[in-house]
């Protein structure tokens, strides 16, 4: 048997879960309650999280040396400039922290994308062996990859009039077929992933171990209340009109 507060917690969790699920029927008051709570909690969570981050950073490493302390204070001061946006006369100052953020971000992107997303992706293409006498099937697969990657790349050619060139039309077709197969595959995989999540929630609602068994009665009660009110409200409105 669990204590009362835990039990209340379970009822709250079940209520919020089902509240969000009711959007599947239509926009309604239960969904709006759950949505409002979610919105509030998430904003509160974000603030708590960021402040904890700042405090942890202060503890280690920023409070270790005087120079770093100055740096920390400076960061907070620059950070306060974000809020200049809310003042009409100095609003443009928010662009300074923004510029620092964007500049650093682009810098970090520039140094890594060329490796992880460009050269390291080209490299396995170069390593393809198109002729494996002992393994004709593998040769065929390699040739397909050898053709597919460049054709998809060329499909996105933006400038000039290359796409009107007849051989390019073939390349474009081939690229589209490749993409469609790839998209289908990714989509098929996602079905499993998404159902896994729902199954997890369903296991919670049914109180299947290790979830608390108290969740199941809560589920039936709250689901019944929500269903009756939703359908009842609809019928009532239909009768009135």
């Amino acid at each position: 048997m669990v204590d009362t507060i835990t039990l209340i917690g379970i009822y709250i969790a079940v209520f919020l879960t089902l509240g969000l699920f009711t959007i599947l029927y239509k926009e309604n008051v239960w969904f709006r309650i759950a949505e409002a709570i979610y919105l509030g909690l998430a904003v509160g969570y974000g603030i708590a999280f960021d402040l904890k981050y700042l405090r942890d950073q202060w503890n280690s490493p920023w409070s270790k040396e005087p120079m770093l302390m100055v740096g920390f204070a400076l960061a907070i001061l620059v950070g306060i400039l974000w809020y200049a946006r809310f003042n009409r006369s100095v609003f443009y100052l928010y662009r300074w922290p923004l510029a620092i953020t964007v500049g650093t971000g682009i810098g970090m992107a520039l140094k890594t994308v060329i490796f992880s997303q460009f050269l390291d992706q080209i490299r396995p293409q170069i390593n393809l062996n198109l002729w494996l006498p002992n393994n004709p099937w593998q040769s065929l697969w390699n040739i397909l990859v050898f053709l597919m990657v460049p054709s998809v790349l060329l499909y996105f050619w933006f400038t000039g009039s290359g796409h009107e060139w007849a051989p390019m039309k073939v390349v474009d077709k081939f690229a589209r077929y490749t993409m469609m197969l790839g998209f289908g595959y990714m989509f098929g995989n996602a079905v499993l992933g998404r159902y896994s999540l729902f199954i997890g929630r369903a296991q919670f609602l049914l109180g299947i171990t290790p979830n608390p068994p108290e969740a199941q009665p809560a589920f039936w009660v709250i689901a019944a209340v929500m269903l009756i009110t939703l359908i009842g409200w609809d019928l009532y409105k239909r009768q009135k009109s």
Binding site: E27, Y38, L39, A42, G46, F49
Partner: peptide, 15 residues
């Protein structure tokens, strides 16, 4: 501004 939480954002967006 909806929410920093990924699905908090989503549920409000859908709403």
């Amino acid at each position: 501004f909806l929410s920093t939480d990924q699905f908090g954002f989503t549920s409000s967006y859908i709403g």
